[in-house]
Lab assay of single mutants.
Amino acid sequence: SAEDNLGPLPENWEMAYTENGEVYFIDHNTKTTSWLDPRCLNKQQK
């Protein structure tokens, strides 16, 4: 699965689903949400 390739979410991040079944990500560090997987963003920065 995609999660196996990317590994676990960063600390204090949570994956959630909208009512429509779309995946989004919650950053409890900054109390924000994102459509972008933080694991993908980390890979792009390196």
Rank of each mutant, 00 (worst) to 15 (best):
S1T: 15
S1H: 04
S1W: 06
S1F: 15
A2K: 15
A2F: 09
A2G: 11
A2E: 11
E3Y: 12
D4V: 08
D4F: 11
N5L: 09
N5F: 13
L6D: 12
G7E: 09
G7D: 11
G7I: 08
G7A: 09
P8D: 06
P8M: 08
L9P: 01
P10W: 01
P10S: 02
E11C: 08
E11D: 15
N12P: 07
N12R: 10
W13Y: 07
W13T: 05
W13G: 01
E14K: 07
E14I: 04
E14R: 05
M15I: 09
M15H: 05
M15K: 14
A16M: 06
Y17R: 15
Y17S: 14
T18P: 02
T18V: 04
T18E: 04
E19V: 11
E19C: 10
E19S: 14
E19P: 13
E19W: 06
N20W: 05
N20T: 15
N20G: 13
N20F: 07
N20I: 11
G21L: 06
G21M: 08
E22I: 05
E22V: 05
V23P: 15
V23S: 09
V23M: 14
Y24A: 01
Y24N: 01
F25D: 00
I26G: 00
I26L: 13
D27G: 00
D27E: 08
H28E: 04
H28M: 05
H28V: 05
H28S: 06
N29I: 12
N29K: 13
T30H: 10
T30I: 04
K31I: 03
K31Y: 06
T32W: 04
T32S: 11
T32V: 11
T32H: 03
T33I: 03
T33K: 07
S34T: 14
S34F: 00
W35P: 02
L36M: 11
L36P: 00
L36D: 07
L36V: 13
L36I: 10
D37H: 04
D37I: 00
P38D: 00
P38A: 01
R39I: 01
C40A: 12
C40D: 14
L41V: 14
L41W: 14
L41H: 10
L41A: 14
K43T: 15
K43M: 12
K43V: 14
K43R: 13
K43I: 14
Q44W: 09
K46E: 09
K46Y: 08
